[in-house]
């Protein structure tokens, strides 16, 4: 679990990011302008800062100078290439342009956390234990044999837990973009995961959306 600081002046968007990051198990703190961001970031060593560029008082680009040791993802409506480059040159770890997809945001957050080693290494729920480093899953202490794709699918669902992922999204995230297989591949893998890990109640089918792992 990571401690994430969300600096975004639009209350609705700030709340939206917070709600989704909380769903996948992160702790979030919300700030609404540049000065507050600098204050909060220097008071506590957050694992990640999600930073809007157009903040009142002190802009996100200016905030960068004060948050040297915190990984940063810029979130902004300024989608121009020069703005993106400026953000990355200032030392941001990633850049998300509004309007963004929630799964995309979570994926990028997780990617940055993985890179900066602030990511989780183990996860436990019910009697299931997952070791991310060795890519092994244990149920009641017993090693459950998963194929590599089954493991990838399970980890993806776990990292986006409580959020429904469409079959298309799952194919993109697990099988890579240019996978030609149909949606049934996803269904078959989901069925196998349910059976192997006893997830019938947790891994539910969401009408017209896809699948959601509820923890």
């Amino acid at each position: 679990m990571a401690n994430i600081l969300i600096a975004e002046d639009d209350v609705l968007i700030n709340n939206l990011i917070k709600k989704n990051l909380c769903l996948v198990g992160h702790e979030c703190t919300q700030v609404y302008d540049g000065e507050q961001t600098i204050k909060s970031a220097s008071a506590f060593a957050y694992d990640l800062l999600i930073l809007d560029v157009m903040l009142p008082e002190v802009s996100g680009f200016e905030v960068m100078a004060y948050v040297k040791n915190t990984p940063v993802i810029f979130v902004t409506a300024k989608g121009k290439l020069e703005d993106r480059l400026k953000g990355l040159r200032l030392g941001a770890d990633d850049y998300i342009v509004k309007p963004f997809d929630i799964p995309e945001l979570i994926e990028r957050v997780n990617a940055v956390l993985r890179r900066t080693k602030k990511d989780m290494r183990f996860f436990d729920f019910d009697d299931v234990h997952i070791d991310f480093d060795s890519r092994k899953v244990y149920k009641s202490g017993e090693d459950v044999r998963l194929t590599p794709k089954e493991y990838d699918l399970f980890e993806t669902l776990l990292r986006n837990r409580n959020i429904a992922l469409s079959r298309d999204k799952l194919i993109t995230l697990v099988w890579s973009m240019d996978y030609d297989g149909d949606d049934r591949t996803v269904d078959i893998h989901i069925r196998r995961l349910r059976k192997k890990l006893g997830l019938e109640k947790r891994l539910i089918t969401v009408y017209k959306m896809g699948y959601r792992l509820e923890i």
Partner: peptide
Amino acid sequence: VDNLAHEIRTPLTTIKGYASYSAASP
């Protein structure tokens, strides 16, 4: 035009975000 894009993107982000939030989450 730049400002307009920004002004339209912000509510769009909110609409899209909350819509997918309510569709995808319990």
